[in-house]
């Protein structure tokens, strides 16, 4: 996966804070990553570690007025999206960067037919009325909705959860975006449907050479469908690298703990590994490395200063003082 292409999207030191009555919540606190064209990046981490907020920041869809991008750059094909006025953001939304939302059961408007809703994204592109129907049918077929022609006039409540999620996917890919963000697309589906949906997503991604950011807390999903992975903890990326390297040889203690916590077949009687303690409150982060209160290998230095990004085996980096020592 050593694609020489320059990145399609590169996020540099992004900070998104929420200004609430309880104080400033640093939901995303200095995140940097990049995605190359056609590449799949997994963004993994616990609930509340800032994965979704990172994605919403890219499309500038933060809840206003509390959420704000404080600093950093989001370069999409060389254009900094952070500095774009809201009125121009529509040039990217749906057309260049698209997103599959978390809850497919709620994401479709109950008052419009399926055909109508899929047509909307084409209408935004001013597609001629004549070819509209055919385009809608084609895109719904491409997400494997059975007997599409009969279903164009049905309403979302007549669809199953999996079918609704595929309809959402159809809307997201209808204009062949260069980057597709899938924000925990399978959390509300059951396991077999999850599997089908992820396979479909991969197929679509490869067919249209889209870049994919897959947000999830399911490491199995990442291993199965991504090229690279970034592990987030408390609003920062603690480790990144190719899926192969990170899963084979995790460097950061947090990543290692996560890998240990994955249940495996044939380990029936053992208690699952758990990371002790709780994730830190993003409104009140510990000094130094955010993970040190829960880290078994924490050193004195970890409590004082946030670690720099240290390259690991020429493949990504880990933000951990232990490697700083080894290399020094």
């Amino acid at each position: 996966m050593n694609n020489p292409d320059k990145p399609l999207l590169s996020v540099e030191n992004l900070k998104t804070y929420f200004y609430t009555n309880a104080g400033i919540v640093k939901a995303v606190d200095g995140v940097s990553f990049y995605v190359r064209p056609g590449e799949a990046l997994g963004l993994a981490g616990e609930s509340g570690c800032g994965k979704s907020i990172t994605c919403h920041s890219i499309l500038r869809l933060l809840p206003k007025p509390a959420g704000r991008i404080v600093s950093g750059k989001i370069l999409f094909e060389g254009v900094d999206l952070v500095t774009q006025p809201e009125s121009r953001m529509r040039q990217w939304r749906g057309k260049e960067i698209s997103m599959i939302l978390q809850d497919p059961l709620m994401a479709l408007n109950p008052v419009y037919t399926i055909g109508n809703q899929v047509a909307e994204s084409f209408q935004l592109d001013k597609v001629a009325r004549k070819s509209l129907q055919q385009k809608v049918i084609d895109v719904l077929k491409s997400v494997k909705i059975p007997s599409v022609e009969e279903r164009l006039n049905t309403y979302p409540f007549q669809f199953s959860g999996g079918m609704r999620q595929r309809t959402c996917a159809a809307i997201a890919i209808s204009r062949y975006p260069k980057l597709l963000i899938a924000d925990e697309p399978t959390t509300s589906l059951d396991v077999t449907i999850q599997d089908q949906f992820i396979k479909l997503l991969k197929e679509i991604q490869q067919r249209h050479h889209m870049a994919l950011i897959l947000v999830t807390h399911d490491l199995g999903l990442v291993a199965e469908s991504c090229d690279r992975v970034a592990i987030m903890y408390a609003g920062r990326i603690v480790e990144t690298g190719s899926v192969l390297r990170v899963f084979e040889n995790p460097a950061h203690p947090y990543t290692r703990a996560l890998m240990q916590a994955i249940p495996r077949l044939g380990q029936k009687n053992k208690r699952l590994f758990q990371i002790e303690g709780e994730p830190p409150n993003p409104a009140n982060l510990p000094p130094g490395c955010y993970f040190h209160p829960r880290c078994h290998q924490a050193m004195e230095h970890c409590k004082q200063e946030y670690p720099p990004e240290i390259p690991i085996q020429g493949d990504g980096y880990a933000a951990c003082w232990r490697y700083h020592k080894e290399e020094a």
Binding site: W92, L101, P110, A172
Partner: peptide
């Protein structure tokens, strides 16, 4: 969520108000 979906798809505020809120 469908309003969020409309935003993601690239609908303008005016369009969202007319097509998604008004009904």
């Amino acid at each position: 969520e469908f309003v969020a979906l409309a935003r993601v798809t690239g609908c303008s505020s005016r369009r969202i108000m007319l097509k998604h809120i008004f009904p």
